[in-house]
Design a binder for these strands. Structure first.
Length: 505
RNA sequence: GGCGGCAUGGCCAAGUGGUAAGGCAGAGGAUUGCAAAUCCUUUACCCCCAGUUCGAAUCUGGGUGCCGCCUCCA
C-alpha cells in the first residue's frame, strides 16, 4: 500500500536493515507489542516505548491499513510475588492495582488502548498446549518439575540477536551455577514451566503444579490472539536478548513457521547517559512527572523529537525545551476551539479525549502548498517513522496559525475573520489531522498547581491599588506592587483594556 | 571477551554523495510606562586521521570517546 508514491520502510532487527513494509494480508496488519510486568508503576522508559508504538499504529491506520494491536500484561512473575510478599498482599492484588495504573497512565498520554490485552494468568491453556507441543517435538525437556527449552536442538537460535551458541558457550559456562543452572543441559536453556516453590501460587500442569516461564507466555498469546505468523512484533531494545530470541525459538520450533516478519525495537531512555532502570534507581514514573506539572503532550513531543531507535537522554533542560515548543503547536491547535468556542476539551480531563485516528483525508482537495506539506510529512514517516522530520512539518504548518491565535487572543477582529477563511481552515484541518497521527492534541492551559501565598481577595486589592497608581502615572508604586507580588510567587500580566490577570507561579 | 548502536551549532535533534530541517536557548529589531506574552530577522562546514570521488556530514579503512545487550528490564 502506498501514499504519494512512497512505501513505508521500517528497520527490521531480524535483518538489521531498513525494509519496505508489506503485510502478509494486503491492507491488514497484525501487531504484538510486549507489555509490562505489572509489579510497579510505569516509568518514562515505558512511556517512550509505548508512545513510539502508538505512533506506528496511528500512522498505519492513517495510511488506510486495518490494524489489530495486541499487547500483553505479564501478571505472574518473581517480582510481582516479591512485591506481594513485601506488602503482605497477593499476586492478584499487586497485578490488579498496577494494571489500573497502567491504563490510566496510557490514557493520559493519549496512547490508544490495544484492541486486546491478554494476561498470562488467563492464557494458561494456550501456554500449556505450546509446551506440550515443544516437548512432543523434542525441543523441550523436563527436570525436577521444571521444563526447559533446549536451545541446542533448535537450528537458528541466535538469529535475532546475532549470537552464536558455540562462541557464547565459553563465557556463559563461567557463570555461577545455581540450582536451576544445574538442571539445564545448556547454559542458554530457559524455563518454559517452573515447578512450584513453597508459599508460591501455582497452576496445575502435566509436569506438576507450577507456573509459566516468562518467554513462553508471549509465544502463546501471540499465537492465540493473532496466529502463527504476525506482521510486526514490538518491544524495547533490551528485550532483543534473551526475551525475543527465546520467543522466536519457542514459536518457530513449535509451528515451523516464522513468528513475526518485522521486529521493531525502541531505544532506551537514558539519564545522565545511563539507561533509566529500577536497579539504578534513576527512574521517574509517568505519573510523578505528569503530576509535577509537565503536560502529557509535552512528554509526547519530547519523545517524538528523537528517532525511536536512538537512545533518548532525559534532562530537565530538554523537557523545558519541549514544553516551550509544545506551547507553540498547542496555540495553533487551539485555534479551532478559540474561534468556535467549542468546549471539546474544556473539562481538562485528558482521559476522555482520545481523538480517534481517521484514515488519511483526500489530499486532492488541498492547495499545492498544503499538499506538499502533507507529502513531506508522509515521506518522513515512511522513512522508518522519522517523527523528528515529521514534527518539523507540523511546526511549519502551525507557524501562521499560531500567529493568528495570538492575535485573536488580544481581541484582533481582523485575525478572527482571517481564521475563518478557507485557507486558514484548510491549514488548521491538515495540522489537526497530522497532529492526531502523532497523537498530539490541543491541551487546555494548566490550572495553577499551588494555592500557597496570599489569598485571592488580597491580590485583587493590590491589583486595584496598582491600577490606581498607574492611572496617576505613579509607576514607581505600580512596579513596587508588581515586585512584591512576584516575590510571593504571583505574576501580573497586563492585558489590553487596562485588565490585569495574575497567575500563581 | 562476544554482539549491536551512536558521535552534527550553547542544548535537543533531522539529514546516507552535490555544498547543513525543526525545536529550545542567545542576539538584533517591533510592540509595551515597566514586565510578561507576541511578531520579524539572525547564528554550524558536521569527533580525529587517511582514502575513494569532479564533489562527502553522508562511502571505505584506521583511531578516539560514549552507550546498550550478553541476569530481570520498554
Amino acid at each position: 500500500m502506498t501514499a504519494g508514491g512512497s512505501t513505508l520502510r521500517l528497520t527490521n532487527t531480524l535483518t538489521r536493515r531498513v525494509e519496505p513494509f508489506e503485510p502478509l494480508t494486503p491492507g491488514q496488519v497484525s501487531i504484538y507489542c510486549c507489555g509490562v510486568t505489572v509489579y510497579d508503576l510505569c516509568h518514562l522508559g515505558h512511556a517512550r516505548s509505548y508512545i513510539a508504538w502508538d505512533v506506528l499504529r496511528r500512522y498505519l491506520i492513517w495510511r488506510g491499513y486495518q490494524v489489530t494491536f495486541v499487547q500483553n500484561y505479564t501478571d505472574i512473575d518473581d517480582k510481582i510475588l516479591n512485591r506481594a510478599a513485601e506488602e503482605g498482599s497477593s499476586m492478584e492484588a499487586v497485578s490488579e492495582r498496577n494494571i489500573e495504573a497502567f491504563v490510566a497512565d496510557m490514557a493520559r498520554l493519549n496512547i490508544l488502548p490495544a484492541d486486546r490485552m491478554p494476561r498470562a494468568t488467563r492464557s494458561l491453556d494456550a501456554i500449556r498446549l505450546l509446551i506440550q507441543e515443544l516437548e512432543a517435538r523434542g525441543a523441550a525437556y523436563s527436570a525436577d518439575g521444571d521444563v526447559y527449552f533446549a536451545v541446542m536442538k533448535h537450528a537458528g537460535y541466535g538469529k535475532l540477536s546475532g549470537r552464536d551458541l558455540s562462541e557464547q558457550q565459553d563465557n556463559a559456562s563461567g557463570r555461577v551455577a545455581d540450582e536451576e543452572e544445574a538442571r539445564k543441559q545448556h547454559p542458554f536453556d530457559f524455563a518454559l514451566w517452573k515447578g512450584v516453590k513453597p508459599g508460591e501460587p501455582s497452576f496445575p500442569s502435566p509436569w506438576g503444579p507450577g507456573r509459566p516461564g516468562w518467554h513462553i507466555e508471549c509465544s502463546a498469546m501471540v499465537r492465540e490472539e493473532l496466529g502463527d505468523t504476525i506482521d510486526i512484533h514490538l518491544g524495547g531494545a533490551d528485550l532483543i536478548f534473551p526475551h525475543h530470541e527465546n520467543e522466536i525459538a519457542q514459536s518457530e520450533a513449535a509451528t515451523g513457521k516464522e513468528l513475526a516478519r518485522y521486529w521493531l525495537h525502541n531505544g532506551m531512555v537514558n539519564v545522565g547517559g545511563q539507561k533509566m532502570s529500577k536497579s539504578l534507581g534513576n527512574f521517574t514514573t509517568i505519573r510523578a512527572l505528569l503530576d509535577s506539572g509537565v503536560s502529557p503532550m509535552t512528554l509526547r513531543l519530547f519523545t517524538l523529537q528523537a528517532h525511536y531507535r536512538k537512545p533518548l537522554d532525559f534532562t530537565a533542560e530538554a523537557l523545558d525545551a519541549a514544553a516551550t515548543g509544545w506551547k507553540g503547536l498547542n496555540a495553533a491547535l487551539g485555534l479551532a476551539a478559540l474561534r468556535e468556542g467549542e468546549p471539546n476539551s474544556a473539562d481538562g480531563d485528558t482521559a476522555s479525549q482520545v481523538i480517534p485516528v481517521q484514515p488519511s483525508s483526500d489530499p486532492g482537495s488541498l492547495s499545492p502548498e498544503l499538499a506538499q506539506e502533507r507529502e513531506r510529512f508522509a515521506a518522513a514517516m515512511d522513512d522508518d517513522l522519522n517523527t523528528s522530520a515529521a514534527l518539523a512539518v507540523l511546526f511549519e504548518l502551525a507557524k501562521p496559525l499560531r500567529a493568528l491565535a495570538n492575535r485573536i487572543e488580544r481581541g484582533d477582529q481582523a485575525a478572527a475573520a482571517e481564521a475563518t477563511s478557507p485557507e486558514a481552515q484548510a491549514r488548521l484541518g491538515l495540522l489537526q489531522e497530522l497532529a492526531s497521527v502523532l497523537g498530539l492534541r490541543h491541551e487546555q492551559a494548566a490550572a495553577p498547581t499551588t494555592t500557597d501565598g496570599p489569598d485571592d481577595t488580597a491580590i485583587e486589592a493590590l491589583i486595584e491599588q496598582r491600577k490606581a497608581a498607574k492611572a496617576n502615572r505613579d509607576f514607581a508604586s505600580a512596579d513596587r506592587i508588581r515586585d512584591e507580588l512576584k516575590a510571593k510567587g504571583i505574576e501580573l500580566i497586563d492585558k489590553p483594556g487596562g485588565l490585569t490577570e495574575w497567575l500563581r507561579g
